[in-house]
Write a protein that binds this DNA or RNA. Structure first.
Lengths: 209, 209
DNA sequence: TAAATTAGCTTACATATGTACGCTCAATTA
DNA sequence: TAATTGAGCGTACATATGTAAGCTAATTTA
């Protein structure tokens, strides 16, 4: 890559980073301004257009990047669980750690999920679908679940986790621990319920043999 | 109430209604402007201040009103369920109907829940807490659940329902029906799981007698 | 080396916003 | 009836925004 392309890439990163950096509990993506982002990235407002068509394009980039980051971290967490211990507990703990170290990554997903741009909502749904899909496969493999049930279980689990994440953003560390315990219980309820329904299905199937 | 106070009340309503009316999939509360709301309500921008300190105060009013509306409608639905039939099914159907007839009421709750104002987030949490609380009591009474478990079950149920509501806003009626079925399955998983865990607890308790 | 490309800059403009200030006049109170 | 109150109005201003137009200078290409 030539000197010029490198510099461009660097500026582009500066823009993305500036935008992520300006997110907070009090500031959502849609409230960021092109001028302010450009200012923090150290370029003139109009130079922004050399990198993105408009703020939306920047935002969608952030959602994609954010989703990817999150999934990578969760995958690492699942690897940790392979070593033994409760998958639920370890996953929840991983999730909370990720949340703590990347709150803004989570924020944009969370907020834009119920945001005002259909494109954003779709992008976030896509990321969540990835989570659900990965978890469905995992469950089918490890718990020998019927596909429909595995899918429903994964949907419920991901929903509950994301939701807890949303609440966690507002909490201090101590309260967050409590929330994590609560979440673990919710997840166990779901896992237990899916297990029980699976048994019922199996019994019915036997009777028909 | 005097003529004057009546007129004032009427204008206030016009403001609230205008604001609700301007909400849409593409327009969140925080993107509404004082001027535009006043315009639709038929008063001068500056007259707005005769009724609300600022837009935030209007918004919080809307959240309170919205939460109340929603709860009233859900209670009616539960009454319908008393006549017989699956509580889950009937509640989900009620919820979907409410959603269809009052999408904007739901929108503000949904959006501001992950919004940028702590006051709004707290207000929405308060409304959701009402839902959870009502449902916890219902479950304790009708299913003889241990309090902790009843609470956790209610939390999970409400989370799943709200979440499905969020997705439903974007869908056409036919797809919505499908989503409702999905949601019913999720709720059954939770109910079954809570039931199973309750049994386990009961057995353990017996052993200790 | 000469020509072409392009990231970034400066200047400029139109637009929308929140809200301060002070007036009017109909309803209320005394 | 005379005095007070207050909902609503018009005017005005400071500010922030997105972005169009055209220039500069360094890198890349031929």
């Amino acid at each position: 890559m030539g000197v010029r392309a490198q510099q461009k890439e660097k500026t582009r990163r500066a823009l993305v980073d500036a935008a992520f950096n300006q997110l907070s509990a009090e500031r959502s993506f849609s409230s960021l301004s092109l001028r302010e982002v450009a200012r923090e990235a150290g370029i003139a407002p109009t130079s922004f257009y050399r990198h993105f068509k408009d703020m939306n394009e920047l935002g969608l980039t952030m959602v994609d990047e954010g989703g990817l980051t999150l999934r990578q971290m969760m995958r690492k967490g699942r690897q940790r669980a392979e070593a033994g211990g409760s998958v639920i507990r370890i996953s929840v703990d991983t999730f909370m750690e990720v949340l703590e170290s990347n709150p803004n990554v989570f924020r944009i997903l969370l907020h834009e999920r119920s945001g005002t741009s259909a494109a954003f909502r779709a992008a976030v749904e896509r990321e969540i679908e990835h989570f659900i899909s990965e978890l469905t496969h995992y469950t089918e493999a490890h718990a020998n679940r019927h596909p429909t049930l595995a899918r429903a279980q994964a949907e419920a689990l991901v929903t509950l986790v994301f939701n807890a994440g949303a609440s966690a953003l507002d909490l201090k560390r101590s309260e967050r621990k409590q929330l994590a315990d609560q979440l673990v219980l919710h997840l166990r309820i779901v896992a237990t319920g899916a297990e029980a329904l699976q048994h019922k299905m199996d019994l019915k199937a036997e009777r028909h043999v």
